[in-house]
Amino acid sequence: MSSEQTELERDISDKVDDVVEPAHGVDEHPAGDHKHGLTDMGYVKVALILALMTAMEVTLTYLHLPGKVFMTILLVLMVAKFWTVVSYFMHLKFDNKIFTRLFYTGLLLACFVYLAALCTFQFFAPS
């Protein structure tokens, strides 16, 4: 065996360290720097967009659209609202990527296991 690291090993190793360590050990947002995020006015605008999306959701329920169209639009709006709050109000868009990874790991895992479980109950089968 050679004492050299193989290309593959080095590559994997770098990738793992990248998961939690910002490049070159320098944090994009040094401690004490709270300048990231939107201005207060920006937050108000985001809230307006969220309010608008909620209004759309509620209006949709009174429109008697065909089931599939209605469901699709509602789910898209739900995901959009969710994403907006997480990215802007919870600062994930501006913060270190580790937070995003930790949170979305839990979220996606939850979606995966529970959707799979509901599938075994024939939940999504046309009734």
Binding site: A31, F99, L109
Partner: peptide
Amino acid sequence: TGLSNNKLAMWMFLGSECL
């Protein structure tokens, strides 16, 4: 990581709350 312990912990807790 240069990140706050508290914030890391909070995000993990929230990830866990998803389940």
